[in-house]
Simulated assay, not measured.
Amino acid sequence: MKEQKHIVWLDVIRLLAILMVIGVHCIDPFYISPAMRGIPEYTTWAAIYGSLFRPSVPLFTMMTGLLLLPVKQPLGTFYKKRIYRILFPCIIWSILYNLFPWFTGILGLDKSIIGDFFCYTQGSESQAFSDSLKDVTMIPFQFSFKENHMWYMYLLLGIYLYMPFFSAWIEKATAKDKRIYLGIWSVSLFLPYMIAYIAPIFGINYLYGEATWNAYGLFYYFAGFNGYLVLGHYLKQGPNWSLSQTIYISAALFALGYYVTYTGFSAAAADSTSTEMDMELFFTFCSPNVAIMTAAVFLLLQKVQVRSEFAIKMLSNITKCGFGIYIVHYFLVGPFFLWIGPSFLPIPLQVPAMAICIFLVAWGFTAFMYKVLGKKAIYIMG
């Protein structure tokens, strides 16, 4: 099988996506920590950065579609190469995250340190081995708030399971077929808003055939992250636009998507009656506003040209370490917030400073593991 040519601009997208993911998690303490929730500037900047970084996960999915569709390997070979590589690191690190509270108890540390590391656990910290073991036994079914970012691993495993079957259609489909698919997928992106705002007008709770006994409505089969897979595959070559055209169109798309995301989330955050579902509505990854922001970033960064051999080498190493960076970075969010949050830095600069520091430490740790363990590091760092 012919080896795929290395795509440097895709490394640039991956770097930005990693920084965005870390940035998203850096704002968690801004509105979850009781001490910060009462400071309006923190909640304002949480909304600004949280909206800005929404393309993070969709960008990863688009890159997966670009690189792996259509699948050229036999089913067993594909599963062994893709699923095994992430399954073992996922299990290992999920166990470590969930055993961390127990370890703090063994070391004689106050249980408040758990909340310092993982802000979602504040008020419910426990150092009991039984509680940690319970969370570990839940790993085959669901992530815990101590490893909040691991939700994406379940999604990624599902995508890998699905791709070889979906690939058969991708391989035979024409460009027009793929555009039609993306068009129907685009309609499905409006469903969260239709359910939230249109359905109540008519006094109904479900749309398009969904009911208490059926969660699979009309657009279900075109909905979800598989649309980003197709979009990444479809945009591999990119439209034949000049750099100036790409900048103008991408800027317009991103600005529109950002406006909807920011204003919607801010309105929900300002409403004391908003539920968690209300707060997350405009942050939904599979929504039209996030989709156009993601497409805008993808199209723009396709035009990036990197000529420095050193930069290309560094980007390639970041790509190699990317999975490990993602897995370990959540351990660092709490400690860096405790260090940078009370610092002299203005609040608007705290998230970028935290994100960069966390990225560098996580990258350094992952690269070190690869250097020490060699190829065996893939079973721990991915």
Score class of each variant (00 low, 15 high):
L16R: 00
L16C: 13
L16Y: 10
L16I: 12
I18F: 11
I18L: 15
I18W: 11
I18E: 14
I18P: 12
L19V: 03
L19K: 04
L19S: 00
L19Q: 06
M20A: 10
M20Q: 13
M20S: 12
M20N: 10
M20R: 01
M20V: 00
M20F: 15
M20L: 13
V21D: 04
V21K: 00
V21Y: 05
I22L: 01
I22N: 11
G23C: 06
G23L: 04
G23D: 07
V24L: 15
V24N: 09
V24F: 13
H25S: 11
C26L: 01
C26I: 01
I27A: 10
I27M: 13
D28Q: 10
D28P: 04
D28A: 12
D28W: 00
D28L: 12
D28R: 03
P29C: 10
P29M: 07
P29T: 00
P29W: 07
F30A: 12
F30G: 03
F30Q: 09
Y31P: 06
Y31A: 06
Y31N: 12
Y31M: 08
Y31F: 13
I32S: 04
I32E: 15
I32T: 03
I32A: 07
I32K: 07
I32G: 02
S33G: 03
S33L: 14
S33Q: 11
P34W: 03
P34N: 07
P34Y: 08
A35G: 06
A35F: 08
M36D: 03
M36Q: 10
M36R: 11
R37A: 14
G38K: 07
G38A: 08
G38D: 15
P40F: 06
P40L: 06
P40V: 01
P40E: 15
P40G: 08
P40K: 00
E41D: 14
E41R: 01
E41T: 00
E41V: 08
E41Y: 08
E41N: 09
Y42N: 02
Y42Q: 05
Y42R: 04
T43Y: 06
T43Q: 10
T43A: 05
T43S: 11
T44W: 00
T44C: 01
T44Y: 00
T44S: 05
T44D: 08
W45R: 02
A46D: 15
A46N: 13
A46Q: 14
A46E: 15
A47W: 01
A47E: 05
A47G: 09
A47S: 14
I48D: 04
I48R: 08
Y49D: 13
Y49T: 02
Y49S: 09
G50A: 06
G50M: 11
S51Y: 09
S51F: 10
S51R: 03
S51L: 03
S51A: 13
S51C: 09
S51H: 09
L52I: 07
